[in-house]
Amino acid sequence: MKVKEKRIDEGRLSLDMLIGLSIFLFAFIFIGQFLPSVFADARSEISVFAEAYKVSVLLTEDPGRWINRANTSEKGFHWESEWYKDNISFRPGLARVGRAGFISLNKLMEFKNATLHYGGSYANDTWIRDVFGLDSPSNSYHVNISLLIPYSTSYNQYYSRNNSGQNVLTIGPPIPNKKVSRYERLVNLPVYSDFIQHYANLPNNVNYRINSTFPLGGALLIVRNTSNIHAQCWVEVRVNLTNTTSLNSTYETVYELGDRVGSTCDITNLTGIYPLTRELNEGYEEVYENFTQTYNELPDNQSVVVRIKNLNCTFALSNVGEIIGDLSSNEARIVSKLVVTVWEG
């Protein structure tokens, strides 16, 4: 049998080849066109993030500047006492002079006053955008500047509130439900009386109840001394929830110190400063859940109960931030989060 072989190797340009090449070129051009727009998003985020960082640095690390345009030899850092006068140009900063990260209370208050003066309300960020260079011919950003308690997270924000229940600092429009850049700074505030919700030197043998709102910004117990080392001494801290209509109530002990069994007081090991913020806030979450599950209703009164036996203590609460240091000395300060949120718009 004779096999006849037909060889087709004359280098034809087949339809397959044309289709394949077309798809490749189409894909190549498509990706080439598409790539810049993919990274535009990331580029935009880098740019917005940098703006949030810039504003946070200018506010927390710099005291600000002022200058008298009519007499340029008159200038300085204390813009807070000059900004409302004639011919004054100024840029606000909140830091104490020479103390980056430590906020001046006067500067903070005048920053709010200036925002109100130039914008008409705290929610209007026009002046802030202008003074921090957030408006340019090519880009425009909105900004929200808030002071939060350190217990806050990016998804659970709790504002620092003074004793009147007002936010210590919230400037700018509400944060929208879109892509934003957020930059956090830890700042040190002075121990201003309006920032300390409760401060009490507690004597021996006391049941001390403080009505409070949770989550707390800061809670501090200072054990100082005892009046009798030959008797047991202890401290117990509870979170108590009550419904004032039904009078249903429940509590949980969140912190205990000392020995409730022995007959002596080991004051050497007990003396010191005890931060209780996290114990109280986490304890509150548990008690709240127990209360609602047990009684099928919501509590309308929240309190912290401090029970002390044979110890002299100081107890302090704040809704502004963590209390660092002994409040009876000038070392004490309140640490909060200054959060700058920027978005395009």
Binding site: M1, K2, V3, K4, E5, K6, R7, I8, D9, G11, R12, S14, M17
Partner: peptide
């Protein structure tokens, strides 16, 4: 007769 098309190339 068997006819074989050898068109593997290209």
């Amino acid at each position: 007769m068997i006819r074989v098309m050898s068109d593997e190339k290209g």
